[in-house]
Amino acid sequence: MASEKNPTVRAARRYVVELSIGMAAYVVVLIATRTVLAELAQPWLTVAALAPALPLLYVFAAMLRMLRGTDEFARMLLVESAAVAGGITALLAATYGFAEGPHLLPHPSAWVTWSTFMAVWIIAAFIIRARYR
């Protein structure tokens, strides 16, 4: 069993704590802002609409801290899988964009790109990790 002195183990545990805090804050802010959104006027409408991005910024910072704190092999796996996910998402987005131009496909929400990236990242991480076993 890896010990608390191991910097990679410490980085992973700190990330779990920070991710939990960030996601809990995200859910709270999202519910709170969406509850009052209909009653707000500008400029508070914009502030409330964008507020859930703040805890996500904290989660992103936590991911970067974890990436710097973890060992070189774990970092390589994360970066390689993120690169594959970014490339595939960009390729899909560009291909969709070409079909969207002449109205062959409907204009999707920006969330589709994010969801695609995350889904491909998870699959890519699983496949790339398996290659090194």
Partner: peptide, 14 residues
Amino acid sequence: ADLVGVSRQTIVAL
């Protein structure tokens, strides 16, 4: 893994 400060998975891959 503890002695060199990496994860056990890194030692497995090495």
